[in-house]
């Protein structure tokens, strides 16, 4: 495959086009506006439609509309904008519409800053909007992986008729790396549910509404069944030098990549460190992590947050291995050196 140099967010945009996405709706926000701009440039070239919405609230609802008539759709935003989309995401999830979201997470809370962060982990993985729904969440750690996960996102969205989120950050979004695009055949079938006009068939409805609690509970049960399938089939993670490792670092996304450097530094000094990197944040790889953490002396969770994924690590490890946490917040990116220094302090204390 031919490699091209691309900025993270633009590579995500191109991957979306390769996945057959022809409808994009979005509202500018740093640090992802280049993705919005890329789609504005590229979509007309491939016969698609780009629309700058009046707000993220409007954008998510435009997505709802375009998805309900059977098209592959995407929007991208950053933290405050993603907060505004939550009501719409809940509707999309309940109405079982496929849609792909990109949140290039920035430092928060509030207006925060525009630097890389993972502080929206809870929002992404534990709801964000109202009600019992789940978002499939993919966390890439390189530009190449971001393109692959974008292609996957569209397939998962259609396969499960569920919103899928690419959970990125400004570092990944702004970084230039060589990427190769997988040429994939695009197949998906929505002929049994999309609103295409009721020609030669009875009218159909796309809805997240059922005034009867028993009816709505049935819809919920159906959703939950689907989520169990997603959990059984779609859990993804990477293990790096974990077999002989004594200590396990758990980190995702950009921090997963930084942690890989820490593992290499440690190995050079003869320290047996391994990395467990969740790729799907929902479904979270609880079982795999539980296994990976067995008989390790320590699990160190590293995040660009106050310890949000830490709660899932604790659930996976279930008290069997000691867990430590190292995090930077608000858009501060930890360096491999500082993580390694922290790790050595922990080892000395053991």
């Amino acid at each position: 495959m031919k490699k091209v140099m691309m900025k993270g967010v633009e590579a995500i945009g191109e991957a979306a086009i390769k996945a057959g996405c022809r409808n994009y709706f979005g509202y500018p926000i740093t640090p992802q506006s280049e993705l919005t701009e890329y789609m504005a440039r590229r979509l007309p070239e491939v016969g698609g439609s780009f629309l700058q919405a009046e707000s993220e609230v409007a954008a998510v609802n435009m997505l709802y509309g375009a998805s309900s008539v059977g098209k592959r759709v995407m929007t991208s935003t950053s933290s405050p904008g993603f907060s505004l989309m939550q009501e719409g995401i809940s509707y999309i999830a309940c109405a079982q519409l496929p849609a792909v979201f990109v949140n290039v997470v920035r430092g928060g809370p509030g207006l925060g800053d525009i630097q890389p962060s993972q502080g929206d982990y809870f929002q992404a993985t534990k709801g964000g909007g109202h009600g019992d729904y789940r978002l499939i969440v993919l966390s890439p750690s390189t530009v190449q992986e971001a393109t692959e996960l974008t292609l996957l996102a569209f397939d998962l969205a259609d396969k499960y008729r569920n919103p899928v989120l690419i959970f990125a950050d400004g570092l990944l979004g702004q970084m230039m790396e060589p990427v190769a695009f997988e040429e994939k055949e695009i197949t998906y079938d929505n002929s049994h549910w999309a609103l295409t006009g009721s020609k030669n068939r009875p009218p159909r409805q796309v809805t997240s509404f059922n005034i009867d609690p028993y009816g709505l509970e049935k819809m919920n049960i159906e959703l939950q069944k689907k989520y169990r399938q997603v959990e059984a089939n779609e859990t993804r993670y990477e293990e790096f030098l974990i077999e002989d490792a004594d200590i396990l670092i758990v980190a995702h996304g950009t921090v997963g990549r930084i942690a890989k450097s820490v593992v290499r530094m440690a190995r050079e000094e003869g320290l047996k460190i391994g990395l467990f990197r969740p790729i799907t944040l929902y479904p979270y790889p609880y079982d795999a992590l539980s296994k990976a953490a067995q008989e390790k002396s320590l699990v160190l969770t590293v995040e660009m947050s106050s310890g949000q994924m830490l709660e899932d690590v604790k659930l996976a490890v279930c008290g069997k291995t000691k867990i430590e946490f190292y995090g930077r917040m608000a858009g501060v990116v930890p360096t491999p050196e500082e993580i390694f220094t922290h790790l050595k302090t922990l080892i000395r204390g053991q």
Binding site: F25, S49, L51, V57, A58, N61, G65, A66, V73
Partner: peptide
């Protein structure tokens, strides 16, 4: 907004 998405 939903209608806009549909029409686009």
């Amino acid at each position: 907004a939903v209608a806009t998405g549909m029409k686009r």
